[in-house]
């Protein structure tokens, strides 16, 4: 079973970490079958900010996130989280990942799926905190339901609650709203950031949706396909908390247009 770590500082008392990546490359496979998934990425995530990574499918944004989470090792280059290696930080339970697929264990109830994160991070049980998180994501009354009895959006919210359960100061969100319909997605986009914005976290969000990226983050990084590297870095200076009305404001639309342009989504010049 998981050992309890008594020597660790409670995560709530630590400050959000700074994340740095230097000349990170990732190659899958060998020889002729080799694929360069990420090439020469230089990146700094300032403590307490939210950064979005956007780009076409297969541009390496998920791979970059997985490397920061310690799930993959860079082929070359280095990544440090608050000066430490990702796998060391992961082992300390100080980072939390939300996956594209909610990845809830089907035989556990919503509450025990959330509680599992604390067990995996070696933290003591805290049913009150679990309950609080579940009501925060609007799952009051669904604590004892299994994932199969929850809707797609509820599962996703449950996964977000799990992601927050350890009080980690670094959140890595890989398309956390990917499997949710457009309406629910927009609602979650507006509701959930309030949960983590309040407590001071460094957040990295991988997404396909330009609107979502602008709505949630302080900074949007655009990655390009082949070579898989950073092609634009755009600051988002929209007041917080963000509201639905922002979606139609001129400055918001200008940012969306700017990012779309960086992604190569522009009108063909008239012939």
């Amino acid at each position: 079973m998981t050992p309890k770590r008594s020597d660790q500082t409670p995560a709530a008392e630590t400050a959000p970490p700074k994340v740095e990546a230097w000349a990170v490359n990732k190659v899958f496979g060998q020889g002729e079958a080799a694929v360069q998934a990420v090439s020469d990425v230089e990146l700094t995530l300032e403590p307490g900010t939210t950064t979005a990574l956007v780009g076409p499918s297969g541009c390496g944004k998920s791979t970059l996130l997985r490397m920061i989470a310690g799930l993959e090792t860079p082929t070359s280059g280095a990544i440090r989280i608050g000066g430490e290696e990702p796998h060391v930080v992961a082992r300390g339970g100080k980072l939390s990942v939300a996956f594209q697929d909610p990845s809830l264990l089907p035989w556990r109830t919503a509450a025990s799926n959330v509680a599992l994160a604390r067990r995996l991070a070696g933290l003591p049980k805290d049913p009150e905190k679990v309950q609080k998180l579940l009501s925060l994501v609007g799952l009051d009354g669904f604590e004892n339901k299994r994932p199969a009895e929850l809707s797609g959006g509820m599962r996703q919210r449950c996964a977000i609650a799990r992601c927050l359960a350890t009080g980690a100061r670094l959140l890595l969100l890989d398309e956390p709203f990917g499997a949710v319909d457009e309406m629910t997605r927009r609602r979650l986009n507006l509701e959930l950031p309030r949960v983590w914005e309040g407590q001071g976290t460094t957040t990295l969000l991988v997404t396909h949706s330009v609107t979502e990226a602008v709505l949630l983050s302080d900074r949007v990084i655009v990655m390009s396909h082949r070579p898989a590297r950073i092609s634009a870095d755009i600051a988002i200076n929209v007041e917080r908390p963000r509201r639905a009305s922002h979606l139609t404001s001129p400055e918001f639309l200008a940012l969306v247009t700017q990012i779309n342009a960086a992604l190569g989504i522009v009108d063909e010049p008239a012939a």
Partner: peptide, 22 residues
């Protein structure tokens, strides 16, 4: 599903935990 194993790994847990938990 590989995602479940990633979940375990993202908390720095290894094969033993993957075996017992998942």
């Amino acid at each position: 599903p590989p995602n479940w194993l990633d979940l375990i790994a993202s908390y720095g847990r290894g094969r033993m935990t993957a075996m017992t938990v998942v």
